[in-house]
């Protein structure tokens, strides 16, 4: 049951990422074409930059799923068995804890910008974009905590 829910969540995440990536590519290209034809759209640039932020957070969340976060792994390459388990438990729970703090900190940012009604552009409030930060870090914390108890698939030095 939990497996099924996780699978569905992952699929939603994958789809969201692909859609955001495609929107980013074609909106950015459209902006260039529009500029060449002398048309500027005031809200397009802030929206594109907001998209980068969302993609960064969703990408980081997915990177957690596949152990793709950048780390120094010279030592861990030498570990196996229980020592590898212990190292993962320690480091991934640490990462989860940091993500909790970051989620809390970004919730503070969202609050701050809601109170002062900081705009992203025109009438769009900035916090609509920023809300991905507490949500993203929160989910990342959860995922790190779960991964702490799971060993990765047989080691495959992949391109990062």
């Amino acid at each position: 049951m939990i497996q099924r829910v996780l699978k569905i969540l992952e699929q939603i995440e994958n789809t969201a990422m692909a859609v955001l990536a495609l929107v980013l590519i074609f909106a950015a290209a459209a902006q260039v074409v529009l500029r060449l034809f002398d048309v500027g759209v005031v809200w397009l640039d802030p929206v594109l930059r907001a998209l980068v932020m969302w993609i960064a957070m969703l990408g980081a969340l997915a990177a957690t799923r596949h152990d793709k976060h950048i780390n120094l792994d010279a030592l861990t390459r030498l570990l196996s068995g229980w020592s590898l388990r212990a190292a993962r438990l320690l480091t991934l729970l640490f990462a989860a804890a940091i993500c909790v703090v970051l989620a809390n900190a970004s919730y503070g940012l969202v609050q701050l910008d809601r109170e002062s009604m900081t705009p992203l552009v025109n009438d769009i409030p900035a916090w609509w974009v920023e809300v991905i930060l507490p949500v993203g870090f929160g989910l990342m914390a959860l995922r790190f905590a779960l991964r702490a108890f799971v060993l990765p698939a047989p080691s495959q030095p992949e391109a990062t």
Partner: peptide
């Protein structure tokens, strides 16, 4: 796209 985004996410997070 997802693989690319994972690298992007890892870099931008840092």
């Amino acid at each position: 796209l997802r693989e690319a985004m994972e690298l992007v996410g890892a870099i931008l997070l840092i």
